[in-house]
Design a protein around this nucleic acid. Structure first.
Length: 434
RNA sequence: GCCCCCAUCGUCUAGCGGCCUAGGACACCACCCUCUCAAGGUGGCGGCACGGGUUCAAAUCCCGUUGGGGGUACCA
């Protein structure tokens, strides 16, 4: 009884113009299992009408999956090109008396007797009594096949062995099983109905009120491996408690039987935290490339050359959790004048020691070697002369030069800004103070 | 309404009858480190929905209650 059949999975999205987070997770789980078992993953595009068959919508699916790192085997299957198969199946069903015409549509006859059940990997045995399943349409009056029919025909025809999909499809499963059997199949694929991804109201993620597009997270600066890693954690967990890890390891550990049955809330905070982990682990060059578009989107951005960008990356790398945050962390380095945050000014520059400290630093900075090391030493000494620890001493300088109380390491920032510009900003602050 | 499913810290999860005075992660709080902020380190807060069984023993098995969700289209 050892079936050595190679698992064959499929991901079957409808081209809606964007990949839904839930769909992305479904794609990922299919992919994980296929790769884990050395099986195959078929990409089946459910472009069942002319509007959905538009090339740009389908390309969007390819691009989204590729971004996430999900590949598939063979050419994508397009349902729009398989109508002849569906029509054949419908004719056969009608011929066999399993389906009948009703107001121009064709319905599959379910009847009231018996039940259909299957052993779901995630949910155990699920049973539907036929008396609760209505006769359902398999061909619309316009001649097109419905989802149920196409689904059953394709899974059979493509030799799909494992159906991994969202829980919102459990109720269609008995229909698909009935069709499959009516079409002559004696076997059933393995079914695994994944728990839904829900919002903070515990409702299924909806396009209307939730940010469900994979692309929108990408735009905000979630990087692909972080997203894939996080998605893998929704409904599944590694046996060793190591959550953030390379996808290759997740492929190795992943099992359908380990998937949870209960809905998982999409937690942007956790996603963001994981994203920060990945950002910190990037090389300077890779991170520089990754934030380039975000820099360029700033008014001051396009002028920043690659060399400068790379120098600045270490300053923001452990401070940015989202790529989109990157420009705001180092922008002051590229302004003609720092944008002074008034709250910061009020907090720091109104202290008695602010002006004396700036005075001291102007003198001290005049003829030191312009390195972060010497700047550090000079600032420390200037502060001590005023009875200030470094923490207090550096504050006015920071506000004068960066415009804020918080930011990247001050002395590295000063080093990058250069002596002339740094002193110019400090002078400007002194002028404002006196 | 009817059908189906779900139920461990606020959230994601580990647990698959004894290793559990329930482990990890995110979030939160405190402390340490420290030029600010981060990052990092240490510690803390916090949970098996409830009620019955079964068993020597239940977070783990069964039943019920309650709560939540999904589906109820000639959409997919």
């Amino acid at each position: 009884m050892t079936d050595q059949v190679v698992p064959r999975l499929r991901f079957a999205p409808a081209p809606t113009g964007f990949l839904h987070l839930g769909s992305a997770r479904t794609a990922l789980f299919n992919w994980l299992y296929a790769r884990h078992t050395g099986g195959e993953l078929v990409l089946r595009v459910e472009d069942t009408n002319a509007e959905l068959a538009r090339p740009e919508l389908i390309d969007n699916i390819y691009e989204s999956l590729e971004w996430l790192g999900i590949d598939w085997d063979g050419e994508p299957v397009r349902q729009s090109q398989r109508d002849h198969l569906y029509q054949e199946a419908i004719d056969r069903l009608v011929g066999d008396g399993r389906a009948y015409e009703d107001d121009g549509a064709i319905r599959f006859r379910v009847g009231d007797a018996g039940s259909t059940s299957w052993d779901d990997v995630v949910r155990g045995t699920v049973t539907f009594e036929h008396e609760h399943v209505e006769d359902f349409v398999i061909r619309r009056s316009d001649g097109s096949a419905t989802f149920f029919l196409a689904n059953a025909v394709d899974d059979l025809d493509l030799g799909i062995t494992h159906v991994v999909r969202g829980e919102d499809l459990v109720n269609v499963t008995p229909k698909v099983i009935m069709l499959r059997r009516a079409l002559g199949a004696t076997d059933l694929p393995v079914f695994a109905h994944l728990p839904l991804i829900v919002n903070d109201k515990r409702k299924k993620l909806s396009k209307r009120r939730d940010d469900v597009s994979l692309a929108s997270y990408r735009e905000r600066g979630i990087i692909a491996p972080a997203m894939a890693n996080y998605l893998a954690l929704l409904g599944w967990g590694p046996p060793d408690d190591v959550e953030v890890r390379p996808m290759s390891e997740i492929v190795e550990l992943f099992e359908l039987t380990d998937i949870n049955a209960s809905a998982a809330m999409f937690d942007l905070k956790k996603l963001t935290a994981i994203n920060g982990d990945y950002i910190r682990a990037m090389s300077v060059d890779d991170l520089a490339d990754a934030i380039r578009p975000y820099i360029d989107a700033e008014p001051w951005g396009p002028g920043v050359d690659d060399e400068s960008l790379r120098r600045v990356v270490p300053l923001l790398q452990e401070r940015a959790k989202l790529l989109e945050e990157a420009p705001g962390i180092v922008d002051f380095l590229f302004f003609d004048d720092p944008e002074i945050d008034e709250a910061s000014w009020q907090k720091i520059m109104t202290t008695e020691t602010a002006l004396p400290m700036l005075d001291a630093v102007v003198t001290a900075y005049a003829d030191i070697e312009w390195t972060s090391h010497d700047l550090h030493a000079a600032t420390l000494a200037a502060g001590e002369a005023l009875g200030l620890k470094l923490g207090k001493a550096q504050a006015p300088v920071r506000v004068a030069v960066t415009g804020r109380t918080v930011g990247p390491p001050l002395f590295e920032s000063l080093e990058m800004l250069g002596r002339d510009e740094s002193l110019r900003r400090i002078e400007a602050a002194r002028t404002r103070l006196t």
